[in-house]
């Protein structure tokens, strides 16, 4: 579970002779000092993460939250059989669990990507 995403490693080359300043010092300082740039940076990260979380929550809210409504407005679906099992039992008793895990997996990937983008943005500036 923890091994499938390799850790970020820094690959550096000793060939350069130029004196390099540590990457992202200014942006780091901006974040640390809470100045305008720092505010903007962190606000953009919070917005990206919130949008991602709410979007996935909305998808699952509609899919799962829609089920009782579907059963209510289309009573036929309560008795429909798929593969010999009643549809509500197949979905609520089985399929929903891998779907929830899949949603979680997708979120972890995307949230970590948001954070990587943020770190890169800070290091580049």
């Amino acid at each position: 579970m923890t091994d499938d995403v390799p850790r970020r490693v820094a690959v550096t080359s000793p060939r350069t002779t130029a004196v390099r300043r540590p990457p992202g010092r200014q942006a780091l300082a901006a974040l640390d000092e809470q100045d305008v740039v720092g505010e903007l940076l962190i606000r953009s990260l919070v917005r990206a993460q919130l949008t991602l979380g709410l979007r996935l929550a909305a998808v699952f809210g509609c899919l799962l939250g829609g089920l009782p409504l579907l059963f209510a407005v289309a009573p036929g679906t309560r008795d429909t059989e798929v593969l010999g099992v009643a549809l509500p039992w197949l979905v609520l008793g089985g399929l929903v669990y891998p779907a929830l895990w899949g949603g979680g997996w997708l979120y972890v990937r995307l949230a970590e990507r948001n954070e990587r983008d943020f770190v890169e943005l800070v290091e580049r500036s």
Binding site: L52, G53, L54, L56, A57, F60, L64, R78, A86, P88, W89, L92, G93, V96, Y97, L100, G103, G104, Y107, V108, A111
Partner: peptide, 24 residues
């Protein structure tokens, strides 16, 4: 009966919401 299947679904989905909105 079948309506009670929502209990375990909710017990698990609660963790998804927790992951999306609060975990990290």
């Amino acid at each position: 009966g079948a309506d009670m299947l929502w209990y375990p679904v909710g017990f698990v989905a609660g963790y998804l919401v927790l992951l999306l909105l609060v975990a990290a």
